[in-house]
Amino acid sequence: MSQFNDDQLKALLQKNQPKAPSAEDGEFSQILARAKTIEKSRFKLQWVGLGSAIAASFLAFWISIQQPNELQDIAMPTEQISDDFDLYNEEWPTMDVGEDFIELASNN
């Protein structure tokens, strides 16, 4: 081989290209079997997904019809929150312990 141009390099590579060993017998059957397995698992997965979605919807519906009052109570409290400041104006008990206690303390 001497110095070559693009076409000669192409010809050299094509003529002497690495040749892959031929396919094993039954290669297509193996591919087909794998394809079928994948298809089956995809099919199963679709049904499992659909079943889960139905079950989740049913559960949500069941919860909503079983506990309407509790849910309503949470949403709408019956006791109104008071903003009445009269509470602070009430007379609170004082710390008056009385004469008896003072006497008792001084005796001890």
């Binding site: 892959a20 060993p21 290669e27």
Partner: peptide, 15 residues
């Protein structure tokens, strides 16, 4: 397919 994979990736995992 065989030829492209063999020439780029070699023989090891060809099949």
């Amino acid at each position: 397919v065989r030829s492209v994979i063999y020439q780029i990736a070699g023989p090891k995992y060809l099949n």
